[in-house]
Design a binder for these strands. Sequence first.
DNA 1: ACCCAGGCGTCAG
DNA 2: CTGACGCCTGGG
Length: 327
Amino acid sequence: MKENFQIYNKEFEGPFNLPLTIKSGQTSQPAWLEQDGYFQELVVAENKPCLIKIKCGSKNMASSLEVEVESPYEIALKTVQDTIKDIFGLNDDLNNLYKFLEKDPKLSPTIEFCRGLRVFKAHNPFECVISSITSANNSIIRWNRSIRMMSEKWGDMYHFPTGDFYTFPSPKKILTVPEHEVEELEYCGGEKNIAECVNNLKTCGVGYRGNYIKRASKIINEDLDLNTIARMNYQEAFQTLLEIPGVGPKVADCILLYGFGRGEAFPVDVWISRIISKLYFHGEKIKPDKIREYGRERFGKYAGYVQLYLFHYARKSGLLDELKPRI
DNA sequence: ACCCAGGCGTCAG
DNA sequence: CTGACGCCTGGG
């Protein structure tokens, strides 16, 4: 199938800034590739691969989106459209969010810095889990590169006129991947020397996280069906995710927010800790679990968006630099 | 040019 | 509670 269509701004509530949403470094997945003015990514819909190309409308259609989709298989257009709306948070009502933010003088300044920024949701929950594990104690560029490399090495490749695209590998596939050079050497029984061992997790730049990634894949392949997470209440889902190696409170909340659309999740990293303590506690040092509790209580179902907006506001307004220790 | 300290969340001790 | 983990960044 190959289809072109528009998504009109009247189909969702509030503004939408596509490039901002894609490039804001949210841990659901790496940023989509930008080519020929389109952002492109291979997603799976109805279990079939589908290339999505999306850009902001031009001229009189400036506030709508132009989309091209292409797949070697037949997929119902409605399914693809719903998938796109879900990925870009187009079901979230930003007008309501802004009404909520406006009521808090600490939050209202974030609106003008982040207008149209939406939660960039995962199209693949497993990829989201691995992305989030890889993002811990890491930089955005580094985990983005790692996830891309994993897809290119072990995902399924599909060829399109605009290039080759890869799915993210399945848990089962990752189980067959050696963790590091030494393990790869053992697997091949000495057929190659250590310098030729480049087909392992460590060569993707994941460092010590390779071990977490393999153990997480094993659990998800054998014991934990990620679909069941979607049906659990927040607490239960949070506790279940904590069982996965490499998943602590911050990563669990990221998975819930980006992978499962739980808007009430409040992922707390050092920056959010500093921002919250500066804005609401006169700069007093507060432990991360207290910050998380505070955020969830104060911001409720908007907690995830508040986290996203505070971080980007702090980044763009210069608050972040100001909060860096020892200036 | 080069080096090395610092920082990111989680886990193990 | 503290240090180690790997890698990149950025200051000297």
